[in-house]
Design a protein around this nucleic acid. Structure first.
Lengths: 324, 324
DNA sequence: CTGAAAGCGCTTACAG
DNA sequence: CTGAAAGCGCTTACAG
């Protein structure tokens, strides 16, 4: 039926093994032969059979992407965006990407297990960090190649992670607002969990102190006690939109009465006015880098673990303003 | 290294071929033997090697999900949500899902080609409908099993499609508003392209006529000419949020002055107040059904093509109100 | 109901 | 620089 390496070999007048070597651009094969083989492949419209290649080589040519076991993934544009970026980079490297997602850790682990044990993938990109879970433990215990997007809390030095510098981002948020003349600021969050919150807040706090300004931490679970605060740093875009609506209802206008800066530069940032001043976290590069790192790890399992920091960029829009 | 079917055979005291048959629950194998084989598999923690299975059987045990070649996929929660549902159903059927996505049709087609020619997947789920494109032509021409989520415009009877009844949804929107006493309505859109718009609007229009009410079509590209309209049917949630903000700026309040009903029930619907009255399109079932249909098609390529219609449900929230 | 054998389409030491 | 051969781990007609 389908064209195989044998057909190509016959047409090029060589042995199948030579075709295989030519395909992989083996250095021992003469350029002349390679050329003949290439021609034959083109003539016959040859495609490798991935199953045969996998079986013979032991490599699957695929990677798995692991989504967090949460319900509201679809609410966060981050996931679709990074999946697209990962796929793009993978395709460039002639690698396919499969996905693992589940509502619970157990479901997720079961998928990951199957994918790896059946040798469907050579490694994984994990799209959530923070505290360890069964999935990560399984990967570490099995010495399975993986990279984490985000910053793990424990055993960080045992794995490769790709992330933004959230602490620096928090600091730059404070810095930028200080530059606009704001003296009394607050960091607004709806959670006190997670590395992302901790790092962003820590950066904010330290910077505020070093600048000798006034800063506080506010939770959206309570009504925001704003006494004289003129600028807010909000944990993410979605929360910022909600906070702004809450302020508007209280007769407080953004940015005239109060400036707001947030993080992620997602759709929500330019959905309604005031469009948000927010940090672009460069998801595309997060995706590309994680694939590259993973391919290195797969090629050389003893490659050292490292942290890759992807740059961010402040997008100034309508929600911030200098104090008059 | 890894446990193979041979190891299991030895342990169970049978031939490898018997193990294979037992695994597939072949009817010719005695229950007693199956039991022995199962025990041996469990003892040895056996996992099949998918590459070997693919090569020998010609089936990949994987399906591909094709995303639309658009930039703003990540802005629409639909994609992540259906991907999750697809993966869930696939996993239940011991199938993995790989993805294809590209910024252009060419890139997309190249990915789809590779996936199929290399036999990495047995079929595809296409996440966009409307007019034909090179990808769909390729699938049709190659008689490759696929199902479309959405409603194709051309050659609809040649493919299996899974969708909501958008026309009925448009009609029910009008019906619901009429029930609240609204007499002058408008359908608001930002595009006149695409099946989704056409169907929803057509349903709206016909229902308005049959009820003897007044209805018009408004484009958000122009400022909305609202003379005495008391209710709006808006193409989707995102647009509805923007429309509501525009109205608010003009001093028009939703739902007191004007009611708004939209479609999709995405995150945007309950992001800010007024929370939207909107149609839940049941994405989970769209995903599950499309996988089931695809698996049927793969198992039996001569299975007839059909259209599967998934029910929807109106979620009444804050943006609609009876006329006083 | 089960076994022995051939074959799926590649890769890769081993020779030369 | 290239060929012949064995092998990767399954499946599946063919026998019995």
């Amino acid at each position: 039926m389908a064209v195989t390496i044998k057909d190509v070999a016959r047409r090029a007048g060589v042995n199948p093994s030579t075709v295989s070597r030519a395909i992989h651009n083996h250095s021992a094969i003469s350029e002349k032969t390679k050329e003949r083989v290439r021609k034959a492949m083109a003539d016959l419209d040859y495609s490798r059979n991935s199953a045969a290649q996998m079986l013979a080589s032991g490599k699957s040519g695929a990677i798995g992407v692991i989504f967090p076991p949460i319900e509201n993934k679809s609410e966060q544009p981050f996931f679709m965006k990074i999946l697209t970026a990962i796929n793009e980079e993978a395709h460039q490297n002639k690698i396919t990407v499969s996905i693992a997602s589940g509502h619970t850790i157990e479901e997720l682990l079961s998928q990951v297990r199957v994918m790896y044990q059946e040798k469907r993938v050579d490694g994984f990109i994990v799209l959530y960090a923070g505290e360890a879970d069964d999935v990560r433990d399984y990967l570490l215990a099995g010495e399975i190649p993986f990279v984490i997007v985000g910053t793990p809390i424990e055993r960080a030095n045992e794995m490769t992670a790709v992330d933004n510098d959230n602490k620096l981002m928090g600091a730059e948020a404070a810095q930028y607002l200080a530059g606009l003349g704001h003296k009394k600021l607050a960091f607004v969050t709806n959670t006190d969990k997670g590395e992302v919150f901790h790092e962003r807040y820590r950066g904010f706090e330290e910077k505020i102190k070093s600048l000798g300004l006034n800063g506080q931490l506010l939770y959206t679970s309570e009504s925001l006690a704003l006494d004289n605060v003129t600028a807010l740093v909000v944990l993410d875009d979605i929360l910022a939109i909600k906070v702004i609506q809450g302020l508007t209802e209280r007769g407080i206008t953004v940015p005239d009465d109060i400036s707001v800066i947030s993080f992620n530069n997602s759709v929500f940032a330019s959905l309604i006015h005031p469009y948000l001043t927010t940090f672009d976290i460069n998801i595309t590069q997060l995706g590309h880098s994680s694939v590259q790192k993973l391919l290195h790890l797969i090629a050389d399992p003893d490659d050292f673990r490292e942290k890759v920091t992807v740059p961010f960029e402040l997008k100034v829009r309508e929600s911030t303003k200098a104090v008059n």
